[in-house]
């Protein structure tokens, strides 16, 4: 595993101390004192400098912090999804978005289209289970009924966009391996760089990804950039997150741009009027409310 720069600096400090001991250019007692002081300084510095503490994080820990940084129980927002094709065609979908952490292993999402007019009222309910298959329900106003639908894996496109259900859902941490690469600076922000690879073929096939490279800021653990590779390790998509909104002290990715480089298609996801912890009742995420007009 390659070490990030700051961690390398610490190793350099220790190496320098030990090297001076080996070279024998000071007395043994003085050398021991220097070594002791060196360790003592590290012990003193580490607790009060989170940056330095973070340097010891493994790839898994970085990802864990990025995934688990939010503390709110529920969220509502107005979502605008803009689709742009290579030929310049643009479609704009507006969606009322509701989400809630129902329990430690269940996340619920309800989305209702408000525009364009021909899909207005279409509703989608997603119940994500940590240890079981997801449940998906679709309400089509034209058919006047809620339908439980099969899923083409979490690699299926979300609302015909370049985002997949995996992209918008909460990543299941234990399903991936995380390899730290050299830290990089993106737009002036120091970032951890993680190479994420699926642990099993099933996960690879389910998500459609053979590898994901993620750029996560070292200070706030914001995922600001990612590159997705398909199962044949060809570059598939690029994600940019140019805008975050602070919610209860935690950054939320409120504008995301996903570009599919293979078909030259772009989807922009923008959240507005975001509210958290409004106390959405659990039964709101049900077939009953999925088909209720407003």
């Amino acid at each position: 595993m390659k070490k990030p720069n700051m961690i390398a600096d610490q190793y350099f400090f220790l190496y320098g101390t030990a090297a001076s001991l080996r070279e024998g250019n000071t007395s043994p007692i003085k050398n021991v004192m220097v070594l002791f002081l060196g360790f003592a300084m590290i012990l003193l510095i580490l607790p009060v400098t989170p940056h330095l503490a973070a340097q010891d994080l493994t790839g898994y820990q970085v990802m864990e912090k990025a995934v688990n940084k939010s503390s709110w129980d529920d969220m509502t927002a107005e979502l605008t999804l803009t689709l742009q094709s290579a030929r310049g065609e643009t479609r704009v979908r507006k969606i009322d978005f509701y989400a809630k952490d129902a329990s430690a292993d269940e996340t619920r999402m309800l989305m209702r289209f408000t525009a364009p007019a021909d899909v207005e009222g279409t509703g989608f309910l997603l119940l994500e289970h940590e240890n079981a298959g997801d449940e998906r329900y679709l309400y089509l106003p034209a058919l006047r009924r809620v339908k439980r639908i099969a899923a083409s894996g979490s690699g299926g496109n979300f609302m015909s966009s370049d985002f997949t259900y995996y992209d918008i859902g909460t990543p299941k941490l234990d399903e991936w391996n995380y390899q730290r690469l050299d830290n990089e600076t993106i737009d002036g922000q120091a970032c951890y760089v993680l190479e994420c690879t699926p642990k099993t073929d099933r996960i690879r096939e389910d998500t459609g990804y053979g590898k994901i490279i993620r750029w996560i800021t070292t200070d706030k653990f914001d995922g600001i950039q990612a590159v997705y590779y398909d199962q044949s390790m060809e570059k598939k998509k690029e994600l940019q997150v140019p805008e975050f909104t602070e919610l209860k002290g935690v950054d939320f990715a409120s504008r995301m741009i996903m570009h599919d480089v293979q078909i030259d298609h772009t989807s922009i996801m923008e959240f507005a009027n975001i509210q958290v912890d409004t106390g959405i009742p659990e039964d709101f995420f049900s077939q009953r409310y999925l088909q209720r007009p407003r």
């Binding site: 298959g133 099969a150 899923a151």
Partner: peptide
Amino acid sequence: FITTRGAWA
């Protein structure tokens, strides 16, 4: 009745 399992219903 209906039940789903992955890509199947």
